[in-house]
Simulated assay, not measured.
Amino acid sequence: MTQDMPPAARLADATTRIARAVALRPAGNPVTVIAVSKTRSVEEIAPLLDAGHRAFGENRVQEAESKWPALRDAYPGTALHLVGQLQSNKADAAVALFDAIHSVDRPSLVAALARAMDRSGRRPDCFLQVNIGEEAQKGGCAIADLPALLDQARGAGLPVAGLMAVPPAGVEAAPYFALLAKLARDHGLTGLSMGMSEDYETAVQIGATHVRIGTALFGARA
């Protein structure tokens, strides 16, 4: 069982599973495995870094600021992805720290990120988050609002890499992944940030370019 494996072995298992899933889809973009390290200690993260992994995801700016500057000094080439919701007043800090922001979901955040990028000169990749299941409690723009948000983001000079979504829990994820992939194609986008520990293989088969995996790599949280 993968839960009994050390983190590096879990990473190898996930990489093998992703390779099998990639073989089942048409040729396309490679898959980036984002190891979601939110709430994980430096001691928990280090084994994956030692194994050569260099893409990690955090949910909160403040938590990332507390542990990643030193880790990045020790492990050059590490890319940091913000995969949680972002408040507009944290835009400057997020742009300074992260290499990609996966939760751009409203006009006010687009404007704040554009100002922060202009001030800093850093331009992290941006994924527009879509509320693919139309759930009131989740972040993401409504499907109907995506064209306007995309136009605004492009007009503001944000480097839009693709779309991100979190399907509803407890239901088959494949139809939601397929809908996000269609929306990306319709808008000329190639990046698809979709798929987590329980459904990343399905997401990869449908075209994910970035999967956000936490528990499957680090094990269950205490």
Rank of each mutant, 00 (worst) to 15 (best):
S37V: 10
G121Q: 09
T78D: 00
T15M: 03
A178S: 13
N59K: 12
I45C: 07
I132Y: 04
I143A: 09
V160T: 02
S88L: 08
R221T: 14
P175V: 10
V171H: 10
T190C: 02
P47D: 13
P6W: 13
R54H: 07
T78Q: 02
A46F: 10
G214C: 14
L189C: 04
V166W: 02
A23H: 11
E172F: 04
V36M: 13
A21W: 00
A153K: 03
M5G: 01
A96C: 10
A142V: 07
I101A: 03
R119P: 04
C141L: 08
L163C: 07
S103G: 11
C141R: 04
R106G: 07
P76Y: 05
L183H: 00
A136L: 14
S108A: 15
A203K: 01
A9D: 15
A208W: 04
A173L: 06
N89T: 13
R20C: 09
A203S: 05
D92G: 10
E63K: 13
P76I: 04
E135V: 11
A148H: 10
S108D: 14
R185H: 14
A19D: 12
V31E: 00
D186S: 12
A94F: 07
D73E: 15
P124L: 09
L217Y: 08
L158H: 04
Y200T: 00
A148M: 07
E198D: 15
Y75M: 08
R54G: 01
A161M: 02
D13R: 11
Q152F: 01
C141Y: 03
N89Y: 09
M196H: 09
R115V: 12
G133D: 09
R119F: 01
V211R: 00
K90C: 07
R115I: 08
A156F: 04
R122E: 08
V95R: 03
V211G: 00
A148R: 14
R60A: 10
